[in-house]
Nucleic acid binder design. Structure first.
Length: 131
DNA sequence: CGGCTTTGACCAGCGC
DNA sequence: GCGCTGGTCAAAGCCG
């Protein structure tokens, strides 16, 4: 309910890369964490595809869920479940200016709070059901 | 060679 | 009570 539950909608993050010319691999926007895909299903309730990701860290049980329209791959909705209990990995490229590096204590908490207030994206689009 | 990814099948919970 | 859905696990295959 109020913890470990954020929803973020990305404008363009889904990308189909041609593998050898056959099959496409879903490319998600790098949030700075490592994820391991462990399932993918088509949810009829919403008519969209849903991918399940789990943090690969050892003590991190954070989970991530990617949901995108069946006909509109441009709309990718990423839902983070749980909180990371380990420092961010080295893939920090987007740090852009975040020199603070940590040190901080409530690094994750701060980020969560920020995302929480990002409800605007959640409202951005919630009606792309196009069967 | 190792690691990661993908797919199918199974299980559980809930609704009516 | 039964059916259905969503979610997770396992195994196999392939790539670098």
């Amino acid at each position: 309910m109020s913890e470990a539950s954020q929803s973020r909608q990305v404008s363009m993050g889904i990308e189909e890369e041609d593998m050898d010319g056959r099959g496409f691999r879903l490319v998600l926007p790098e949030d700075g964490y490592e994820w391991r895909k462990y399932g993918q299903k088509f949810i009829k309730n919403i008519g969209k595809f849903r991918s399940y990701f789990k943090c690969q860290r050892s003590n991190c049980s954070a989970k991530k869920r990617a949901e995108w329209s069946a006909s509109k791959p441009g709309t990718l909705r990423v839902v983070y479940e749980g909180v990371h209990t380990h420092d961010l990995p080295a893939t920090e490229s987007a740090s852009s200016g975040q020199s603070g590096t940590s040190s901080s204590t409530a690094n994750q908490y701060d980020l969560l709070t920020q995302v929480f207030g990002d409800r605007s994206s959640t409202t951005t689009s919630l009606h792309d059901d196009h069967p």
